[in-house]
Amino acid sequence: MTAKPGSPLANRRTFLRAATAAGAIPAAALATGALAGTAQAASGPDLPDFAPVPAAAQGPALNGAGYFVGRIDGHLYWVTDGNYQAMFLSTREGVVLVDAPPTIGHNLLRAIAEVTRANGRPAKVTHLVYSHSHADHADHAGASSILGKDVVRIGHSECRRFLLRANDPNRPAPTITFEDRYTLQVGGEHLELAHHGPNHSPDNIFIHAPGHRTLMVVDVLYPGWVPFKQLAVSQDIPAWLRAQHIAMAYPWRTLVGGHLGRLGQRADGELQLAYMADLEASTRAAMSLDPAPYFAKYGPAGNSWAVLKTYLDAVAAAAAAPVVAKYTGVLAAADVFTLDNAGTLVESFRIDAGILGPFGTHP
């Protein structure tokens, strides 16, 4: 099987060969297909293989309808389809739902009906809390419309602004908004909502259920997994890095991260902090890479973009290699998104922190 030059597979192979030559990834891992870049011939697209997902990263089995609903504590529950998560409180007056991912869709209502039939409480959703809007896509709010017009929708003031701008009928804007903190009390239950500044998105909030020692914060911590690509496609990388520590400062026992198939525990948060600390340290070290060969190759032709692309790609590959080697088998998808996350850190260090390496001001 031959990958075309410049293809993602060819780039990944280049990264893995360089990392193996540097001793960062054992050659045996490539021979056994334990890491990306070992795609085998198949009848479909030329796709790479990746390391197996560790058992510890897997969530509970889904039912025949394609969802799982479970109790977190007391009358606090969660529901997942294996890729997205929502949380809900069953109260004496109705249900408070946090997020309405469209991939779960009407299974949200089925999960709620299942729970409320068992506990004898009302099944009607009376309140919906938006963790964030993400007006460029509807991954956590896109099923809001199935709840009807009478639901009280709550979110940060920026969430309302973004959703009014989006004008998406599937995501009605919240009618109750707040700036810093808001306590929602319904039917003997309560949630504490807080905005600690922008992170993954400008309006992303923390939803704390103190009576149940549970925190829901979306696209910040990924229990059992490395963060999604580009550090969760976050709009403010330094603030996203801080948000991890803000989340860990809450006194929670259980975390609802909004993605993937299982809940989190505090050990999961500590493991992600360790992963990110290693990636940050490795990226800082890699940014001293000598750019001379890249200028020598592309400079005479005046192709500045080629110089920068190949140099920055090489920095990201050097940064990612030891982290991939350390966390493969420990965190799911370490071999899938670490290279991408390293590239995002490189750009954030350059733009946000002024870490310019050999491109800094020199006497």
Rank of each mutant, 00 (worst) to 15 (best):
P5N: 06
G6P: 08
A10K: 05
N11V: 14
F15N: 06
T20R: 07
A22K: 11
I25K: 02
I25Y: 01
T38G: 13
F50I: 04
A51P: 00
A55N: 09
P60C: 11
L62G: 05
N63Y: 05
V95S: 05
P101V: 09
P102C: 09
N107W: 08
L109R: 11
A111L: 01
E114Y: 14
R117P: 01
P122Q: 02
A123T: 15
A123G: 12
K124N: 13
V129L: 11
D136C: 04
A138Y: 03
G148A: 06
V152L: 15
I154M: 02
G155Y: 02
E158T: 15
C159G: 11
C159K: 06
L163Y: 06
D168V: 10
L184A: 00
G187S: 10
H196Q: 13
H208D: 11
P210F: 12
H212M: 12
R213Q: 14
L215P: 05
L221T: 00
L221N: 00
L221R: 00
G224V: 08
F228M: 13
K229R: 14
I246F: 06
I246K: 05
P251K: 04
T254C: 09
R262E: 00
E270D: 15
L273Q: 14
M276E: 14
M276D: 07
L279C: 01
S282L: 02
L289M: 15
F295S: 06
V307Q: 03
Y311A: 14
A317E: 13
V323Y: 06
L345M: 13
F349C: 01
G354M: 10
G354R: 11
P358W: 04
